[in-house]
Amino acid sequence: MATVKVRIPTPLQKLTGGLGEVDGDGNTVKDMFESLETKYPGIKERIYDEEGTMRRFINVYVNEEDIRFLNGEGTELKDGDDISVIPAIAGGI
C-alpha cells in the first residue's frame, strides 16, 4: 500500500486537528480517502455526497495533475505522491 502526502484545504482542517498536510494510505485515490476517514472521521461525507459520488466542486490533483486527466478516483498511487484537495471554485478569471 502506498503512503502519500495529502494537502487538506482550510475548510477541512477542522477535521484534521488543524493540519494542512496529512499522510494518507491506499493504492488508489478512492482507497486513500477511505483510509483518511478512519483517521479523521467525518472527512468522507465532505468529499463524497449521499450517493457516494465525489462532490462536484472538489478537484483532486495527484502530483499537480487533475485526476480527471488521469484515471479519476481509480488513479493509482505510489509512495511519496503529492495529493491536493482543492475547491473547484478556486478562481476563474
Partner: peptide, 26 residues
Amino acid sequence: SYDDVNRFCSEVAAVFKWAFVNINIR
C-alpha cells in the same frame, strides 16, 4: 496554463491575506 495559475493562486490566497478578486472576493 491559466488553470495552473488559478490552482496555484488558491494556495497563495490561503497564505497571503490579500483580496484576491476572483478567489476570496469572488
